[in-house]
Amino acid sequence: MIDERALISRILQGDRQAFRLLITQHERLVAHMVARVVKHDEEREELCQDVFMRVFEKIGDFNFQSKLSTWIATIAYRLAINHLRKQKMSFLDIPEEERFTDLFVEERNPAAILEDEDSDGMVLKLVDKLPPQYKMVLMLYHVEGMRYDEIGEITGMPEGTVKSYLFRARTLLKDKVIKYLGKEELL
């Protein structure tokens, strides 16, 4: 596998095949990040294209202080959040009160969440209801296997905040799973 420095050097010399290689190496990561927060497929593809356009424009500024994937993920995170801001999506934090956390998950019709879904599908439906920053942190940690410091670099959050987001989101999801399935069902 070609190393990052050689790949970037080739891209800077105008080698389009090198840039194609960079895209194929990182498109899965970018697609996962965008797919977690954007619902419509056309918007997702468009946004992923914008991410790699920005990568191409800024590749000369990459200073090898982090992994290339972390740097690309940072661009994807910023563009995805800006996209959501343009759509006036709220960026609420999850306050501690249970009363408020209930607002994130539809409780009036739990059957809609449970319907035709296995337990994984049910949890992922609940994840969809979380604020975008939480979804991103969960995805980067659990799907991409990134470390707290890498996620912090991508999202601009301190490591402690990343840990807190993970902990709170998982606790909230666990409580909802117990609420929907019932303790007896789980045991």
Partner: peptide
Amino acid sequence: AYRQVFQAL
């Protein structure tokens, strides 16, 4: 419940 959450995530 946590096991289900971790598996799904």
